[in-house]
Simulated scan of single mutants.
Amino acid sequence: MTTLTLRAIAFGFILGAAPVGVALAQDAPAETPSQSAVEETPWRATVTGQIEAFRSRDPSGAFEYAADAFHQGFPSPEAFFVAIVGSGYAPIMESRSHSFGEFRRIDDMTVMQRVKFVGRDQMLYEALYLLGQEEGAWRVQGVQLMKQQGLGI
C-alpha cells in the first residue's frame, strides 16, 4: 500500500467517522456541560492539547493526540500536519479561542464532543470531535469542521 493510499484512508476516516458517530450518538441523550460534567470530561484535555499544538505549529504535539489510525496512516508528524492543513482545517489552527459545547457518550470508550471556535477572521466555526480511549488515553479519531453563521468577538 502506498503512502498516498494510506493518507486517503486516514482522511476518509477523518471525514467519514464523524457523520457515522453523529448518527450513532443521536440515540443517546445529549449532556449539557455543568461543573460536574466538566470535571468528568477528561477528553477535553486531549482536544485542547491538540488545538494548542496546531496553533503553535507543533506537528509532533498535534500528532501525539491523534488516534492510532493516524499514526499508522502517516509516515511522520510533519506529513500529518501538512495533510490536515491542506484538508481545510486551518480555521482550527488559526482560531483565536475555543469553547466546549455538549457531548454525547457513544459508549464507555467513545465520545462525540462539540467545540466552537472563533477564527482569526472573527468567523464562527463548530467542530464535532470523535474521541476514543486507546491504551488508557483519549485520542482524536476524527473531526468534522463546519462554518457557522455570525461573527465572534
Rank of each mutant, 00 (worst) to 15 (best):
E135D: 14
R44T: 06
V85E: 15
E52F: 06
F117T: 00
T32L: 15
V22Y: 15
Q133M: 09
T32P: 01
D108I: 00
M112Q: 10
M109C: 03
E135I: 00
P33E: 09
Y129I: 00
M112Y: 07
E126R: 05
I14R: 02
T3G: 08
T32M: 14
A18C: 09
G152Y: 13
A25M: 05
Y125L: 02
H98V: 00
W138N: 03
F103I: 00
F74L: 03
Y65F: 15
F80Q: 03
M123Y: 10
F80M: 04
F11R: 12
E94D: 14
L15A: 11
G16M: 11
Q133P: 01
Y89P: 01
E102D: 09
Q133Y: 09
L145G: 04
T3M: 03
I9D: 12
E40T: 02
T110Y: 12
F117P: 06
E126T: 02
P91G: 02
R57I: 01
W43R: 07
D108F: 08
T32F: 15
L130N: 02
R114P: 02
E40F: 09
L151W: 15
G61S: 07
P29A: 11
T32E: 15
L151I: 01
E39G: 07
L15M: 09
G101R: 11
S76E: 07
E31A: 11
G12L: 08
W138P: 05
A18D: 08
S95F: 10
V140Y: 10
S34D: 15
T32G: 06
V47Q: 03
W43C: 05
S36P: 07
E64L: 04
W138R: 01
E126I: 00
G136Q: 09
K147Q: 14
F100W: 14
V20A: 15
G150D: 04
R114Q: 13
G142S: 15
V118L: 05
K116D: 14
L151S: 13
P59H: 11
H71S: 04
L15C: 06
G21V: 06
Q35P: 03
L128Y: 11
S87C: 03
D108C: 01
V111M: 07
G12R: 13
A66I: 00
L24E: 11
G49F: 12
P75K: 08
W43F: 15
P77I: 02
G132S: 12
A83L: 04
L124E: 05
G136F: 12
G49A: 09
L130M: 10
A79L: 03
R96K: 15
A66G: 08
E134I: 00
I153M: 11
Q50K: 02
L4H: 08
